[in-house]
Every structure is written in structure tokens, then in C-alpha cells.
């Protein structure tokens, strides 16, 4: 999505964005590869807690949905479920080349090409895999964006819900999860 530079937040939203920027709780959606880059980011070498970031257990509690690596159509359905369970303001950080253009799975019958057709991605962290330095750099960028009120993916999703829904249905057939555990 194209970022507009107009800042029409009122003073309460600015204060709220200050809190949001300095306390980022993440739900890590790590069924693709790349989860291994996050323990060094979290532990003593890079220590993401000093920026107020930390992992949370459920999507309800989280502000950021961090999607690492490729997404198969099957996991994309779960990601959409998880994203719609989160409370706004909510942000998506997509991690690794596969979320940008499919990466090495560009011709796979089971993995999607680009994530931002289906969900509003606020920030991409490129690389295969991005090292912890890059991850920290990316999150610094996200903090700056939230402070300035530029991370508006969740509003974009609300406003263009039909467009996202249509893309989801075109690629997935249907978003509703039907498997042996949901019968």
C-alpha cells in the first residue's frame, strides 16, 4: 500500500501511538522457516526486550503478527484466522523473501506468491533468512512508523476488506478451515 505523509491524528492518538510504538508484543507465526533467527534476537546477544518487544502466547494479546517465511495455502487460512482475532491497532511484519515474492517457492503449487495481496503488511524484512541484525533494524523501522502514525495496515484492511477478501477467495477457494479437527 502507498504511504501518505499527511498526519491527521489527534493528540490522544499520538499519545496512544507512543505507547504502541514502545511496547510491541508479537505473535510469532513460525510454521515456515526462519523461527531460528528469533531466539538470538530475543536472548542476550541482541535482546529485543530493551526496545519493549516480546513474544506473547496468543493473537488476542499481540500487537504484531510476525510471519516468518513461506506460507502454504493451508497455513494462510490459519494466518487469516489469527489476524482477524487480533485487536486493533494491529500490525503485520512479514519476514523473509518468500513473503515478498514467493522466494525459492515461486513455482510451487502449494505456497502463495506475495502476502500483501491477502493481508495488509506494514513492514517487510527481506533476506533468506534475515539475520538478527536485520530483524532488529526492521523493528526499529516499525517503531518509527508507528510513532509517526504511518503503520496503518489495519485501517487499510478495514477500508478495503472486499478487495482483500476477493483475493483470498480467488487463491484459496474458501477461507473457512475444514479439517478433521474442525468437523
Amino acid at each position: 500500500m502507498v504511504l501518505d505523509e499527511k498526519d491527521n491524528r489527534n493528540v490522544w492518538e499520538k499519545i496512544g501511538d507512543y505507547f504502541s510504538a514502545n511496547s510491541i508484543w508479537m505473535k510469532w507465526y513460525c510454521t515456515g522457516c526462519g523461527a531460528i533467527e528469533l531466539p538470538p534476537t530475543m536472548t542476550s546477544r541482541y535482546d529485543m526486550e530493551r526496545l519493549g518487544m516480546g513474544p506473547m502466547a496468543t493473537p488476542r494479546q499481540a500487537d504484531v503478527l510476525l510471519i516468518t517465511g513461506y506460507l502454504s495455502t493451508k497455513t494462510l487460512r490459519r494466518v487469516i484466522y489469527s489476524y482477524e482475532q487480533m485487536n486493533s491497532p494491529r500490525f503485520i511484519v512479514a519476514f523473509g523473501s518468500c513473503t515478498i515474492n514467493g522466494g525459492i517457492y515461486y513455482d510451487s503449487y502449494a505456497t502463495i506468491g506475495r502476502l500483501d495481496k491477502y493481508l495488509p503488511v506494514d513492514l517487510y524484512i527481506a533476506g533468506c533468512m534475515p539475520r538478527p541484525e536485520v530483524v532488529m533494524n526492521g523493528f526499529n523501522e516499525l517503531i518509527k512508523m508507528i510513532k509517526k502514525g504511518q503503520a496503518k495496515g489495519w485501517k487499510h484492511y478495514q477500508e478495503n476488506y472486499e478487495w482483500y477478501k476477493k483475493n483470498q477467495l480467488d487463491s484459496l477457494g474458501e477461507v473457512i478451515i475444514k479439517d478433521e479437527f474442525h468437523e
Binding site: 505507547f19 504502541s20 511496547s23 526486550e49 530493551r50 519493549g52 486493533s88 491497532p89
Partner: peptide
């Protein structure tokens, strides 16, 4: 580790209060 800022817990609480909830 270096650890969070000393007022991080306040930021967390006020951030949570600021969000929508289900």
C-alpha cells in the same frame, strides 16, 4: 541481557488499555 526500561511495565499497561478489545 540489558533488559527493559524501568518504566516498561507502565508502557505495556497503558498500551493495552489503549487497544480495542474483544
Amino acid at each position: 541481557r540489558y533488559g527493559a526500561r524501568w518504566y516498561q511495565q507502565f508502557l505495556d499497561i497503558f498500551k493495552a488499555l489503549r487497544k480495542d478489545s474483544t
